[in-house]
Each structure stands twice: as C-alpha cells, then as structure tokens.
C-alpha cells in the first residue's frame, strides 16, 4: 500500500493497472478529430413528383447514452434547400454556422437567384472533401434535399470522405441498412419518381422512422420531418411524435414476449 500524499484518492495501479498517460497533455503534434463524440443517427429522404421529403430523429447520443433528446438535425438553408445531418453533432453545428454565413454572403446582393439544393450540395461536398484531404474530417454524413436549378426535385448525399452520390431515395447510417430497402419499394429508379405522390413519400418515410425506432438502439420516437416543394418552399416540423407504434409482433419473437418454445 502506498502512503504518499501524491497517491491519495487515485486508482491503485495494482488494482486498476497503470494510468494511461497517452491521455495527458504533452507536446503533441497537431491532432484532429479521430472519432465522433456526440452523434446523431440516420437521416432518410425520398423524392416524389414535385419535391422531396426528408426526416431525422431528434436524438443526440453520447455513446450508448441518449444525451440530448431535442436536437434539430434538419437544418433549413433557404426556401428550396434543406440539409439533414447525421454523425458528430459538434461538426454539425460547425456546418450549420458555415451555411449560415454562406446564406448571409449570398444575400449581400439582391440580384441573382440564390443557391439551389444542387449548388448547396456541391459546396458541402467541396468542404467535406477538403477536410478529409487535410486528414481533419467533419465526421458527418449529410443528405441535401430540395430543388435544383430547374425547380426539379433534388436529393444527394455527401459524407466525411467527400464521397457523393444521388438516388431517388437515400438513407444514412443505420437507415442505409434498414430503411433504404423499404424506401426503394417506393421508387427504385429515377423514372418512377414522377409516379410518387407526396402523401405516399411522407407515409413511407414515417413508416421507416418507425422501423428505425424499433431496431436502431440509438434512435428516438421524436423526430423532425420536412417537405420541400416549389409551391410550399421548405415545410419543416421539428417536434413530431411517432404514432401507431405496435409491439404486437413482439410476442411472436423469442426473447421478447414469447417465453416458451411451443
């Protein structure tokens, strides 16, 4: 046992192992984000006949802890573009401020048409690719939803590596595995988009939010949803509640309600 005052109150090496000094400050080379800390999970979006619907839940997790339950992860840019952000929340806030200052600079002049969703996606992909190339990534995956230069529905993704892709339906994070296959039933091909009605798209997204709440442990039943159309601009609701949930199926599953093997 050690009686020196310096050791009082400190975890004992013989019990807990030596202190990992790599966590202490020292003259390090400059370091960058190595992992996300407070994180948001999936973002979902579907294109329909005359717009795009996008949704994300209101949870920010700290590891497995549901840390913040009122986090708005859909960030509206202007009347025809909105960004849904998953991944690190502090990086999301940085991106939000970036978009805010971009919007201010865009409005210095009253002339021109302003930025559309495609322009915004290009901007964000350059930011993300630059940061990954500096080995200082913004730890996010984002969906940019809205209207392009011809006021046609636009939906595209960009992630922490600067990878970009576009599709009639998109989902980030867990949603890429769980929701995307379901959403593809609505529109698997660009040619099918013109047959999708707004109600159908909204319904599909809500249904997927429900599936994600059932199966993604880092998800929440409170969510934000936005619809972007030419007529209505960005219609954003940030305090929605998942409805018509049912655990009826649970008693057919071993380990949930079902206790005995038949």
């Amino acid at each position: 046992m050690n009686h020196l005052p310096q050791a009082w109150g400190r975890p004992r090496d013989d019990v807990y192992g030596p202190y990992d000094a790599s966590y202490l400050q020292s003259s390090h080379p400059q370091t960058h984000t190595q992992q996300p800390i407070v994180t948001g999970t999936s973002v979902l979006a579907v294109k329909f006949k005359d717009g795009v619907v996008i949704a994300a839940d209101n949870l920010a997790s700290y590891g497995s802890l549901a840390r913040f339950t009122d986090v708005k992860r859909l960030r509206p840019f202007n009347s025809r573009a909105i960004v849904g952000i998953g991944g690190d929340v502090s990086d999301m806030q940085y991106i939000d401020r970036l978009l805010n200052s971009l919007d201010i600079a865009e409005n210095y002049s009253s002339e021109g048409h302003g930025l559309n969703a495609r322009n915004l996606h290009t901007y964000l992909s350059k930011v993300m690719y630059k940061r990954r190339s500096d080995i200082n990534p913004l730890w996010n995956q984002m969906l940019v939803a809205g209207l392009d230069g011809d006021d046609k529905p636009f939906l595209s993704s960009v992630d922490l590596l600067g990878t970009t892709f576009s599709s009639p339906t998109l989902a980030t994070g867990f949603g890429a595995h769980l929701a995307q296959p379901l959403l593809r039933k609505v529109a698997d091909d660009e040619s099918q988009v013109s047959d999708v009605a707004r109600e159908k798209a909204v319904e599909a997204v809500k249904e997927c939010m429900k599936v994600l709440f059932y199966r993604d442990a880092r998800s929440l039943d409170k969510y934000s949803i936005a619809v972007v159309t030419k007529e209505g601009g960005v219609e954003l609701k940030e305090d929605e509640q998942l409805e018509n949930q049912s655990w009826q199926f649970a008693d057919t599953i071993r380990g949930y309600g079902r206790t005995q093997e038949v």
Binding site: R10, D13, L24, I135
Partner: peptide, 22 residues
C-alpha cells in the same frame, strides 16, 4: 508497491488499445 499516479517521466504511448486514426 506502486504509485497509482506515476511521477516518473512517462512516455506517452498508449497503455492499452485506444480507438484511433481516420
């Protein structure tokens, strides 16, 4: 018996595995 907080000059190599690198 050991001091739980080593005052000897330490090297900053990680003791165990630490999640790392991008």
């Amino acid at each position: 018996p050991s001091y739980s907080f080593s005052q000897a000059p330490h090297n900053n190599a990680a003791a165990g595995s630490k999640e790392h690198s991008f």
